[in-house]
Design a binder for these strands. Structure first.
Length: 431
RNA sequence: UCCUCGAUAGCUCAGCGGUAGAGCAUCCGGCUGUUAACCGGAGGGUCGUAGGUUCGAAUCCUACUCGGGGAGCCA
């Protein structure tokens, strides 16, 4: 019995007899020769069955295989310059595992709606598989980096009693006799954990019931939220640029094949690692005004503004110190200019928009209490959050990195929905 | 919520007032080096739903349903 090996490792089995276990990606045939394109999750290889060599029975078995049929194939590995991957398998024996019915996703074009309805099958095509691998590598690079920097992963709850901000965008559910909501951010819990462990992060799903229909939005998305005690604004930004640089470098080093499958412009990614450019909100407004945009100090940026701002740079850019009024209640005011907060958004280049939002948090009890009143937040549900300012409060900072936006940018895809296995988009809960 | 575009064969689309079409997929036949293989043949349709205009509607009008893209908001 020939050893079972993975397609990705075939180059080290030249002239040996091996068994492959996979699925038929495509088949081309003539009267007396068939080319079976087999995939197994590690790669794609062409298996050649010649009628005069394998005999009528095996040849007929090959002919019976339909697109996406599962099959074991035994044969001899052969180096061949005509093969895209440099190797082929000369078929000796095939063992159909299951003959697939007429497969819905052909090698031709399909519309978004159809593909989304068949997401469970769409994942099998090389491009989607490459995206899942890149996503996994990005997650690995993130946790590798943070773990290496002394962060401790702490998992916040998914079911929460109330929101971090306002409640209109929350998915409501019940918790026995109480109202409960699906989390839209683990940040407040991370602040609590940081007061115990110093540097912490979470990496998990967030849910926002926003009626957003754009290529940058998902209803359920994954966010990485580091939080650091005794860390102020400046260091917060350095951690962010260092993390993102590490992630991009990791993908460049580990996902060359996947990036090629996706036709990603690798030279653009290679320019990313390093120190990122910065603009203050003030500078950004002035720059936009000079460009002819009708915008004044105190206005928030829209998508066209962000695209224009990020378009100046080949690296992600920080836009920092936004007006206090525009930002979340927990953000620390700049001590020299209380009308702005010590925050920054990181905008990805090439028009991918915001991938990180972060800030230094308010650590003063009285100021936080005042913000609660201004934002009419119910003190009973947030009392534990105020406790963090009652018992050994320290300056601290953190940020949230949108995983799918980061994947979409690094992979160079058009739409964020392909950056997650089973996307939840507006009005789509299937499959 | 608003703006905008769309819905015709299993899929991608053409047809835009006068007999329902093509490519791919499927099935049959041919082909010993194919690369989304190719060549020949066959089957396949309540033209999203409901109403209206008209001698006649896939085509024009209205409403609805479902979906795409975008805005706001955000990661």
């Amino acid at each position: 019995m020939a050893p079972v090996v993975k397609i990705g490792s075939l180059p080290s089995y030249i002239e040996q007899t091996v068994m492959l276990e996979g699925w038929l990606y495509n088949k081309r045939s003539s009267g007396k020769i068939q080319f079976l394109q087999l995939r197994d999750g590690t790669g794609l290889v062409q298996c050649v069955a010649v009628k005069s060599e394998v005999g009528d029975e095996v040849f007929a078995e090959c002919a019976s295989l339909t697109q996406e049929s599962s099959v074991r194939v035994e044969g001899v590995v052969r180096a061949d310059e005509r093969a895209p991957s440099g190797v082929e398998l000369v078929v000796q024996r095939v063992e159909p595992v299951q003959i697939a019915q007429e497969y819905p996703i052909t090698l031709k074009e399909h519309g978004v709606d159809f593909l989304m309805d068949h997401r469970h099958l769409w994942l099998r095509v090389p491009k989607q598989a490459a995206l899942m691998r890149i996503r996994a590598h990005i997650q690995r690079a993130i946790t590798e980096y943070l773990d290496g920097q002394g962060f401790t992963r702490v998992d916040p709850p998914i079911l929460t009693p109330s929101s971090c901000e306002d409640t209109t965008e929350l998915f409501q559910t019940t918790y026995f006799d109480e109202e409960a909501y699906l989390t839209q951010s683990g940040q407040m819990y991370m602040e609590a954990a940081a007061m115990s462990l110093g540097k912490v992060y979470s990496a998990g799903p967030c849910f926002r019931a926003e009626k957003s229909k754009t290529r940058r939005h998902l209803i359920e998305f994954w966010m990485v939220e580091p939080e650091m005690a005794y860390v102020e604004h400046e260091e917060n930004l350095r951690v962010q640029e260092s993390l993102v640089s590490h992630v991009v470098t990791h993908v460049l080093n580990h996902c060359e094949e996947e990036l090629r499958t996706l036709n990603r412009d690798i030279s653009a990614l290679a320019k990313v690692p390093g120190t990122f450019p910065r603009m203050s909100y003030d500078e950004a407004i002035a720059w936009l005004q000079k460009k002819g945009f009708d915008i004044k100090w105190g206005d928030d940026f829209g998508a066209p503004h962000e695209t224009e701002l990020a378009g100046q740079f080949s690296q992600p850019v920080f836009i920092e110190r936004y007006p206090t009024e525009l930002k979340a209640f927990y953000m620390q005011p700049d001590p020299n200019r209380p009308e702005v907060v010590l925050c920054a958004d990181m905008l990805a280049p090439e028009g991918y928009g915001e991938i990180i939002g972060g800030s230094q948090r308010i650590h003063d009890y009285d100021l936080m209490k005042q913000r609660f009143a201004q934002h009419k937040l119910p003190e009973d549900t947030y009392d534990w959050y105020l406790d963090l300012r009652r018992f050994g409060s320290v300056p601290h900072s953190g940020f949230g990195l949108g995983l799918e936006r980061t994947v979409a940018w690094i992979a160079g895809i058009e739409h964020i929905r392909e950056a997650i296995g089973f996307p939840r988009t507006l009005y789509r809960l299937y499959p």
